[in-house]
Write a protein that binds this DNA or RNA. Structure first.
Length: 365
DNA sequence: ATGATTTGACCCGA
DNA sequence: TCGGGTCAAATCAT
């Protein structure tokens, strides 16, 4: 894990830049005959970008210049930026980290978060369906172990406390509280605290999306499924180290010149496990070429198997890595793309084309 | 036997 | 002092 402050600062800058670029593209879209859906995608991208930027600001210590960046304790880095909480999109209390200082001496002894209240916290409201049963939304995709239940003053229903099953084995300090609503017993308010750091704590079923995920027009391919509160920092780190090179991999001749997406590289790395190719490319269905996805994180021997297709040769805006599925694989989404020669957005790509990048699920960040 | 849940006690912050 | 959050022993389930 690299120094947190410098990394966060870079991530913050990249998120802001992304937001600006998306806003610019939106401006182009507004002056052209693009679909409302494409515009909506850009708006969501902008909101997501600023959400994350705000989150970083909220979670950062007082700014430390990159050149003086100090190492972040492993535990702090591990519990870093939450994936979902968010203000711009109207989600709750990102400033409310009143988790109670349960740390005590045990935390220090096991290198766990020194202050539980430092863990990010956000809330989802989940309404149960009739076939869900009275037990409520117990299965959100992660493996939880109940460790307590309390009657809460003024509440009709007790509050249940859960921690990650893999707390002891993988030092994963994610917890959640489940509180049934007084007003509507079919609604459960689930407060998550801390981010899952367990590599094997993957969900057995799809998890409900955290707020920003819920607004994402993500298309899931095959068995890859959405999951909440997953590693924003991991994904961002991957993204910032991502390099996308377009190539005439199909053997066709439509892409006349290779294009390159370049991202700031990162020194950390992880093994590339497997990748599968593109999903649909939009209404016209054109497959004009393929792009090769490479990254400093990808093992050279397997890089060639990482492909996703683009319909034209995009040069800016690109891959938005959104989530980690239940196998621990990262899912990347091409949010939008801009044609290099015309500097115009590629409408049939924006927001609807996905690429999946599978990351070795055994890798621990 | 092992792991999960229950539940009373304890700790800490407001 | 009180309420919320967590611990841990007892109990339950597989």
């Amino acid at each position: 894990m690299e120094g947190g402050s410098c990394y966060e600062e870079k991530t913050l800058i990249s998120e802001l830049i992304l937001g600006v670029n998306l806003a610019r593209q939106l401006r182009v879209h507004l002056s052209s005959d693009t679909t409302p859906e494409a515009r909506e995608v850009l708006i969501k991208g902008i909101l997501n970008s600023y959400d994350k930027a705000l989150l970083i600001l909220q979670w950062s210590e007082p700014p430390i210049p990159c050149q003086t960046a100090q190492p972040v304790p492993a535990s702090a880095a591990a519990t870093g930026i939450p994936e979902s909480p968010l203000s711009v999109n109207g989600s709750p209390n990102s400033n409310d980290f009143n988790g109670g200082l349960a740390a005590r001496e045990q935390f220090d002894a096991r290198e766990t978060p020194k202050k539980r209240k430092m863990l990010p916290k956000w809330t989802n409201q989940v309404k149960i369906s009739p076939d869900t049963g009275l037990e409520g939304p117990q299965d959100d995709g992660y493996n939880w172990r109940k460790y307590g239940q309390k009657d809460i003053l003024g509440a009709k229903f007790p509050r249940s406390y859960y921690r990650c099953t893999y707390r002891n084995t993988q030092n994963c300090w994610a917890t959640k509280q489940v509180q049934r609503s007084d007003d509507d017993p079919t609604v459960f308010e689930i407060t998550y605290r801390g981010k899952h750091t367990c590599a094997l704590g993957g969900p057995s079923t799809p998890a409900p999306a955290s707020p920003d995920k819920q607004e994402s027009s993500q298309i899931v391919h095959g068995s890859h499924q959405q999951q909440d509160q997953q590693p924003h920092d991991n994904l961002t780190r991957f993204r910032t180290g991502l390099r996308v090179e377009t190539d005439n991999l199909d053997g066709g001749n439509i892409i006349e010149t290779p294009c390159t997406f370049s991202f700031p590289s990162s020194s950390s790395g992880f093994l590339h496990h497997e990748a599968y190719s593109s999903l649909g490319l939009g209404s016209n269905g054109n497959h004009h070429g393929s792009s090769r996805l490479s990254s400093p994180f990808l093992s050279p021997s397997t890089t060639e198997s990482s492909y996703f297709s683009v319909s034209q040769c995009p040069v800016s805006e690109l891959v938005h890595i959104h989530n980690r599925d239940w196998c621990g694989y990262d899912i990347a989404e091409i949010v939008s793309a801009t044609n290099s020669s015309t500097n115009s957005p590629i409408p049939d790509l924006g927001g609807f084309s996905l690429a999946a990048v599978d990351i070795d699920p055994n890798f621990t960040f």
